[in-house]
Protein backbone atom coordinates (compact mmCIF):
# COMPACT_ATOMS: atom_id res chain seq x y z
CA UNK A 1 0.00 0.00 0.00
CA UNK A 2 2.82 2.36 0.87
CA UNK A 3 4.50 1.71 -2.45
CA UNK A 4 1.17 2.30 -4.24
CA UNK A 5 0.79 5.68 -2.56
CA UNK A 6 4.42 6.55 -3.24
CA UNK A 7 4.18 5.71 -6.92
CA UNK A 8 0.80 7.41 -7.36
CA UNK A 9 2.22 10.53 -5.71
CA UNK A 10 5.09 10.35 -8.18
CA UNK A 11 2.55 10.17 -11.01
CA UNK A 12 0.82 13.34 -9.79
CA UNK A 13 4.13 15.15 -9.35
CA UNK A 14 4.91 14.19 -12.93
CA UNK A 15 1.63 15.53 -14.30
CA UNK A 16 2.06 18.77 -12.38
CA UNK A 17 5.72 19.39 -13.16
CA UNK A 18 5.57 18.39 -16.80
CA UNK A 19 2.55 20.74 -17.12
CA UNK A 20 0.22 18.00 -18.31
CA UNK A 21 -2.22 18.77 -15.49
CA UNK A 22 -2.09 22.44 -16.48
CA UNK A 23 -2.91 21.56 -20.09
CA UNK A 24 -5.84 19.39 -19.04
CA UNK A 25 -7.26 22.01 -16.70
CA UNK A 26 -6.82 24.89 -19.14
CA UNK A 27 -8.34 23.07 -22.09
CA UNK A 28 -11.31 21.78 -20.13
CA UNK A 29 -11.85 25.17 -18.50
CA UNK A 30 -11.93 26.74 -21.96
CA UNK A 31 -14.42 24.11 -23.13
CA UNK A 32 -16.49 24.85 -20.07
CA UNK A 33 -16.70 28.51 -21.00
CA UNK A 34 -17.06 27.92 -24.71
CA UNK A 35 -20.09 25.60 -24.57
CA UNK A 36 -22.66 28.06 -23.18
CA UNK A 37 -21.05 31.10 -24.78
CA UNK A 38 -21.14 29.53 -28.25
CA UNK A 39 -24.79 28.65 -27.73
CA UNK A 40 -25.54 32.19 -26.63
CA UNK A 41 -23.59 33.94 -29.38
CA UNK A 42 -24.33 31.78 -32.43
CA UNK A 43 -27.66 33.49 -33.33
CA UNK A 44 -26.16 36.94 -32.75
CA UNK A 45 -23.14 36.18 -34.94
CA UNK A 46 -25.33 34.69 -37.65
CA UNK A 47 -27.49 37.80 -37.67
CA UNK A 48 -24.45 40.06 -37.96
CA UNK A 49 -23.06 38.29 -40.99
CA UNK A 50 -26.36 37.64 -42.71
CA UNK A 51 -26.54 39.46 -46.08
CA UNK A 52 -29.15 42.22 -46.39
CA UNK A 53 -32.65 40.97 -47.08
CA UNK A 54 -32.10 37.33 -46.10
CA UNK A 55 -34.22 36.29 -43.18
CA UNK A 56 -33.69 33.17 -41.10
CA UNK A 57 -35.79 32.65 -38.12
CA UNK A 58 -33.74 31.14 -35.38
CA UNK A 59 -35.41 30.29 -32.17
CA UNK A 60 -33.87 31.85 -29.09
CA UNK A 61 -31.12 29.60 -27.70
CA UNK A 62 -31.98 27.54 -24.65
CA UNK A 63 -30.11 25.54 -22.04
CA UNK A 64 -30.39 22.57 -24.42
CA UNK A 65 -28.25 24.38 -26.98
CA UNK A 66 -25.60 24.94 -24.36
CA UNK A 67 -25.57 21.24 -23.39
CA UNK A 68 -25.60 20.27 -27.04
CA UNK A 69 -22.28 22.11 -27.31
CA UNK A 70 -21.01 20.33 -24.19
CA UNK A 71 -21.91 16.88 -25.52
CA UNK A 72 -20.43 17.71 -28.91
CA UNK A 73 -17.14 19.19 -27.71
CA UNK A 74 -16.19 16.78 -24.94
CA UNK A 75 -16.70 13.50 -26.85
CA UNK A 76 -14.68 14.88 -29.74
CA UNK A 77 -12.13 17.49 -28.71
CA UNK A 78 -12.14 16.56 -25.03
CA UNK A 79 -11.47 12.87 -25.57
CA UNK A 80 -8.87 13.81 -28.18
CA UNK A 81 -7.02 16.00 -25.67
CA UNK A 82 -7.27 13.20 -23.11
CA UNK A 83 -5.63 10.79 -25.55
CA UNK A 84 -2.88 13.27 -26.41
CA UNK A 85 -2.08 13.95 -22.76
CA UNK A 86 -2.10 10.33 -21.64
CA UNK A 87 -0.76 8.40 -24.63
CA UNK A 88 2.75 8.44 -23.16
CA UNK A 89 1.65 7.22 -19.76
CA UNK A 90 3.36 3.84 -20.12
CA UNK A 91 5.39 4.50 -23.25
CA UNK A 92 7.57 7.21 -21.74
CA UNK A 93 8.65 4.92 -18.95
CA UNK A 94 9.59 2.24 -21.46
CA UNK A 95 11.46 4.48 -23.87
CA UNK A 96 13.34 6.36 -21.17
CA UNK A 97 14.11 3.27 -19.13
CA UNK A 98 13.03 4.94 -15.92
CA UNK A 99 11.23 1.83 -14.68
CA UNK A 100 14.40 -0.26 -14.40
CA UNK A 101 15.48 1.33 -11.12
CA UNK A 102 11.99 1.30 -9.73
CA UNK A 103 11.20 -2.32 -10.60
CA UNK A 104 14.55 -3.65 -9.41
CA UNK A 105 13.72 -1.99 -6.09
CA UNK A 106 10.84 -4.41 -5.80
CA UNK A 107 7.83 -2.36 -6.90
CA UNK A 108 5.34 -4.82 -8.34
CA UNK A 109 4.39 -4.27 -11.93
CA UNK A 110 0.67 -4.34 -11.16
CA UNK A 111 1.19 -1.38 -8.82
CA UNK A 112 2.71 0.56 -11.70
CA UNK A 113 -0.39 0.01 -13.81
CA UNK A 114 -2.88 0.65 -11.01
CA UNK A 115 -1.09 3.84 -9.94
CA UNK A 116 -1.10 5.20 -13.45
CA UNK A 117 -4.71 4.22 -13.95
CA UNK A 118 -5.87 5.89 -10.73
CA UNK A 119 -3.89 9.04 -11.40
CA UNK A 120 -5.26 9.36 -14.94
CA UNK A 121 -8.83 8.79 -13.75
CA UNK A 122 -8.45 11.41 -11.04
CA UNK A 123 -7.00 13.99 -13.40
CA UNK A 124 -9.67 13.26 -16.01
CA UNK A 125 -12.39 13.49 -13.35
CA UNK A 126 -11.10 16.78 -11.97
CA UNK A 127 -10.80 18.38 -15.43
CA UNK A 128 -14.19 17.06 -16.44
CA UNK A 129 -15.89 18.33 -13.28
CA UNK A 130 -14.26 21.71 -13.80
CA UNK A 131 -15.58 21.85 -17.35
CA UNK A 132 -19.03 20.75 -16.28
CA UNK A 133 -19.19 23.16 -13.34
CA UNK A 134 -18.28 26.14 -15.51
CA UNK A 135 -20.72 25.14 -18.24
CA UNK A 136 -23.43 24.61 -15.65
CA UNK A 137 -22.78 27.99 -14.03
CA UNK A 138 -23.05 29.91 -17.28
CA UNK A 139 -26.03 27.87 -18.47
CA UNK A 140 -28.17 28.55 -15.43
CA UNK A 141 -27.07 32.19 -15.54
CA UNK A 142 -28.25 32.64 -19.14
CA UNK A 143 -31.21 30.31 -19.21
CA UNK A 144 -33.46 28.10 -17.21
CA UNK A 145 -32.23 24.53 -16.83
CA UNK A 146 -35.76 23.27 -16.07
CA UNK A 147 -36.28 21.84 -19.56
CA UNK A 148 -33.27 19.53 -19.19
CA UNK A 149 -33.76 15.90 -18.08
CA UNK A 150 -31.22 13.42 -16.68
CA UNK A 151 -28.35 15.91 -16.85
CA UNK A 152 -26.15 14.33 -14.19
CA UNK A 153 -26.66 10.86 -15.60
CA UNK A 154 -25.76 12.03 -19.10
CA UNK A 155 -22.64 13.65 -17.70
CA UNK A 156 -21.76 10.47 -15.80
CA UNK A 157 -21.95 8.15 -18.80
CA UNK A 158 -19.66 10.39 -20.84
CA UNK A 159 -17.20 10.35 -17.93
CA UNK A 160 -17.33 6.55 -17.98
CA UNK A 161 -16.49 6.58 -21.67
CA UNK A 162 -13.42 8.69 -20.82
CA UNK A 163 -12.34 6.06 -18.29
CA UNK A 164 -12.61 3.40 -21.00
CA UNK A 165 -10.37 5.50 -23.23
CA UNK A 166 -7.80 5.80 -20.42
CA UNK A 167 -7.74 2.02 -19.91
CA UNK A 168 -7.27 1.57 -23.67
CA UNK A 169 -4.38 4.04 -23.72
CA UNK A 170 -2.70 2.19 -20.85
CA UNK A 171 -3.31 -1.21 -22.40
CA UNK A 172 -1.92 -0.05 -25.75
CA UNK A 173 1.11 1.44 -24.00
CA UNK A 174 1.87 -1.85 -22.24
CA UNK A 175 1.29 -3.89 -25.38
CA UNK A 176 3.39 -1.85 -27.79
CA UNK A 177 5.76 -0.08 -25.38
CA UNK A 178 5.45 3.17 -27.36
CA UNK A 179 3.00 6.02 -27.60
CA UNK A 180 2.12 5.45 -31.25
CA UNK A 181 0.96 1.96 -30.38
CA UNK A 182 -1.08 3.35 -27.55
CA UNK A 183 -2.78 5.95 -29.77
CA UNK A 184 -3.21 3.53 -32.64
CA UNK A 185 -4.89 0.88 -30.50
CA UNK A 186 -7.20 3.48 -28.95
CA UNK A 187 -8.04 5.02 -32.33
CA UNK A 188 -8.64 1.65 -33.97
CA UNK A 189 -10.85 0.47 -31.13
CA UNK A 190 -12.97 3.63 -31.31
CA UNK A 191 -13.32 3.24 -35.09
CA UNK A 192 -14.35 -0.40 -34.64
CA UNK A 193 -16.93 0.65 -32.06
CA UNK A 194 -18.39 3.14 -34.55
CA UNK A 195 -18.47 0.44 -37.23
CA UNK A 196 -20.29 -1.90 -34.86
CA UNK A 197 -22.81 0.88 -34.35
CA UNK A 198 -24.03 0.36 -37.92
CA UNK A 199 -25.77 -2.81 -36.74
CA UNK A 200 -28.92 -1.58 -34.95
CA UNK A 201 -29.31 -4.47 -32.50
CA UNK A 202 -25.79 -3.98 -31.19
CA UNK A 203 -26.17 -0.24 -30.58
CA UNK A 204 -27.47 -0.52 -27.06
CA UNK A 205 -24.44 -2.60 -26.00
CA UNK A 206 -21.91 -0.35 -27.67
CA UNK A 207 -19.77 1.91 -25.43
CA UNK A 208 -20.10 4.58 -28.11
CA UNK A 209 -23.67 5.08 -26.91
CA UNK A 210 -22.26 6.70 -23.78
CA UNK A 211 -20.65 9.47 -25.78
CA UNK A 212 -23.11 9.93 -28.62
CA UNK A 213 -26.65 9.75 -27.28
CA UNK A 214 -26.35 12.04 -24.29
CA UNK A 215 -28.64 14.68 -25.81
CA UNK A 216 -31.41 12.11 -26.15
CA UNK A 217 -31.24 11.72 -22.39
CA UNK A 218 -31.52 15.45 -21.88
CA UNK A 219 -34.53 15.81 -24.13
CA UNK A 220 -36.17 12.79 -22.57
CA UNK A 221 -36.08 10.76 -25.80
CA UNK A 222 -34.07 8.09 -24.02
CA UNK A 223 -34.15 6.94 -20.42
CA UNK A 224 -31.18 6.01 -18.19
CA UNK A 225 -32.33 2.38 -18.31
CA UNK A 226 -31.63 2.40 -22.07
CA UNK A 227 -27.96 2.80 -21.18
CA UNK A 228 -27.65 -0.10 -18.75
CA UNK A 229 -26.31 -2.63 -21.27
CA UNK A 230 -23.75 -0.21 -22.61
CA UNK A 231 -22.61 0.77 -19.11
CA UNK A 232 -22.09 -2.89 -18.20
CA UNK A 233 -20.13 -3.57 -21.41
CA UNK A 234 -18.00 -0.44 -20.95
CA UNK A 235 -17.19 -1.26 -17.33
CA UNK A 236 -16.36 -4.85 -18.20
CA UNK A 237 -14.11 -3.76 -21.07
CA UNK A 238 -12.31 -1.21 -18.89
CA UNK A 239 -11.65 -3.79 -16.20
CA UNK A 240 -10.55 -6.38 -18.76
CA UNK A 241 -8.04 -4.02 -20.34
CA UNK A 242 -6.50 -3.20 -16.97
CA UNK A 243 -6.50 -6.79 -15.67
CA UNK A 244 -5.06 -8.19 -18.91
CA UNK A 245 -2.44 -5.43 -19.06
CA UNK A 246 -0.84 -6.75 -15.85
CA UNK A 247 0.24 -10.24 -17.04
CA UNK A 248 1.30 -8.76 -20.38
CA UNK A 249 3.43 -6.20 -18.57
CA UNK A 250 4.90 -8.97 -16.38
CA UNK A 251 6.22 -10.67 -19.49
CA UNK A 252 7.61 -7.52 -21.09
CA UNK A 253 11.33 -7.11 -21.23
CA UNK A 254 12.44 -3.73 -19.98
Amino acid sequence: MKSYIAFTTKEFTEQLRTHKALIMFTVFLLFGIMNPVTAKLTPIILEMFMPEGVEITLGDPTALDSWAQFFKNIPQMGIFVLAIVFNGLMANEFTKGTLINILTKGLSRSTVILSKFSMAILLWTASYILCFAVSYGYTIYFWSNDIVYNLLFAVFVLWLFGVLIISLLLFGGVLFKNSYGSLLLTGTTVVIMFLINIVPILQKYNPVLLSSSNMDLLTGKMQPSDFTASIIVTTALTMTFIVVAIPIFNKKRI
Binding site: K2, S3, I5, A6, F7, T9, K10, T13, E14, R17, T18, T98, N101, I102, K105, G106, L107
Partner: peptide, 17 residues
Protein backbone atom coordinates in the same frame (compact mmCIF):
# COMPACT_ATOMS: atom_id res chain seq x y z
CA UNK B 1 15.63 9.04 -13.46
CA UNK B 2 12.51 11.15 -13.46
CA UNK B 3 13.98 14.41 -14.66
CA UNK B 4 11.42 16.56 -12.84
CA UNK B 5 12.47 15.30 -9.42
CA UNK B 6 15.29 16.41 -7.15
CA UNK B 7 17.77 13.77 -5.89
CA UNK B 8 16.18 13.77 -2.45
CA UNK B 9 12.69 13.33 -3.84
CA UNK B 10 13.93 10.47 -5.97
CA UNK B 11 15.58 8.72 -3.04
CA UNK B 12 12.40 9.23 -1.02
CA UNK B 13 10.43 7.52 -3.79
CA UNK B 14 12.91 4.63 -3.88
CA UNK B 15 12.80 4.30 -0.10
CA UNK B 16 9.01 4.29 0.00
CA UNK B 17 8.91 1.60 -2.66
Amino acid sequence: FYSYMTPKEYLKLCGDI
